[in-house]
Amino acid sequence: MLKRLVAMILLTLAAGCSANQAAPDGVSGQGTEQVSEGGEKPAHHGDGGFRNLYLSEDYEPSTLAFLQARFFGDMNWPDAPQDYQVFWQATDPALVQQPAPQPQATLIGHSTVLLQYQGMNILTDPIFSQRASPFSFAGPQRYTQPSLALNELPEIDVVVISHNHYDHLDVESVAALGNNPLWLVPLGLKDWLQRQGIEHVRELDWWQSHTVGGVQIQALPSQHWSKRTLFDTNKSLWASWAFRWPGFTAWFGGDTGYNPVQFKEIGEALGQVDLAMIPIGAYEPRWFMKYHHVNPADAVEIFKDINAREAFGIHWNTFVLTAETIDEPPQALAAALQLQQIDAQRFQAMNIGATWRANDSLQLTRAQRPGSATLPD
């Protein structure tokens, strides 16, 4: 009974499960996040927190119903495999210590990606711990190890955080990386990082950007939520991120549900995305997860909306967070791409540990890009 109680608490706190909350008053896909006139706060700023704008009117997922189905119903939940090596490979440390001249991105595990270009080393949502949990003894346990250890990383210049769930903001990894990198976070997370001893941190709202080392890094919308304790639901913001060098643009989705508005806005703003890192896992059952976690079919819609040339999947093959089988995301992604008649080489369920590298055809000048004017900080 105690084990079940702890697990139920974890499912509501950790690993990105959706909360039971009503749709924002008066919001059913109307309005825009980008407009803030006459000193009014942006539309995604609620009273004392933040909110999604493009959830349908039937948005009432029940956490209680989910927990009942999970623990007392007939929902099939995969067991964490032991030493799972399919879709995993070790990364050669030399590959990241001496990166190629062209842009490259290494999937270390879950949503942790090392993005490298022009001397910059950028790390996304670092989690190197064995559990995505507030507890060391319980919670989702890692079944594939990081493809690189912390001491095998190059010197990290920037860390970006998408939101505060335990599988994306890991206290042990934060402590290990320390104050050497610049931490870029959505609104509301600076105080938490400072409590962990991190002072080299900057908060950004959606559409704000910061330039460092020749790359413009911009916080962009996503459809998700935040919660780290029982009392802080949506007190901090969630975000996707764009990385814009002259001639190369990457986008990191973090964790998100799909809507037909925000990602098209991102595509229009960026013009074209050379590399997209899009979540493809942790999406079943759909009646509960669809509002905040895309499935592979939704991921393909995001791929199209943001005008991505190439992509690889993140947020899978690391923790058992939801009800789909371990090997389902790459199969579902292949089926979705075939249905949309998109070349499967353009959007891959890349192995953890593999490194994506831009080929020469992607090296376009910024002047060749529609909608690619530099945005002010």
Score class of each variant (00 low, 15 high):
A14T: 11
G16N: 03
G16Y: 02
C17S: 08
Q21A: 14
A22S: 14
A23C: 12
P24I: 05
G26C: 06
G26F: 03
G31F: 13
E40H: 14
H45R: 15
H45C: 15
G49K: 06
N52F: 03
S56G: 14
Y59W: 15
S62I: 09
Q68K: 15
Q68W: 14
Q68M: 11
R70N: 14
R70K: 14
F72I: 07
M75A: 09
N76L: 15
Y84W: 14
F87D: 15
A90H: 07
D92W: 12
L107I: 05
G109R: 04
G109T: 07
V113Q: 07
L123W: 00
T124F: 01
S129P: 08
P134E: 03
S136D: 14
F137D: 07
F137R: 10
A138H: 04
Q141H: 12
Y143D: 13
S147I: 12
L148R: 04
N151S: 13
P154Q: 03
P154E: 01
V158Y: 00
I161P: 07
H163C: 05
H168N: 14
H168F: 12
V171R: 11
V171H: 11
S173Q: 00
L177W: 02
L182Y: 07
V185E: 03
V185L: 02
L193V: 04
I217K: 03
I217Q: 02
A219I: 01
L220E: 05
H224V: 04
R228E: 08
R228K: 09
L230C: 02
N234R: 08
S240A: 03
S240T: 05
F243E: 11
W245E: 10
G247V: 02
V261N: 10
I266N: 06
I266V: 15
I278A: 05
P279F: 01
E284S: 07
K290D: 11
P296Y: 11
E301D: 11
A308C: 04
G313R: 00
I314K: 08
N317H: 06
V320C: 08
T325Y: 05
D327A: 13
P329I: 06
P330W: 09
A332H: 13
A332I: 01
L333G: 01
L333H: 08
Q338W: 06
Q340T: 06
I342P: 14
A344M: 08
Q348A: 08
M350I: 11
G353Q: 03
T355K: 07
R357P: 09
D360I: 04
D360T: 03
A373G: 14
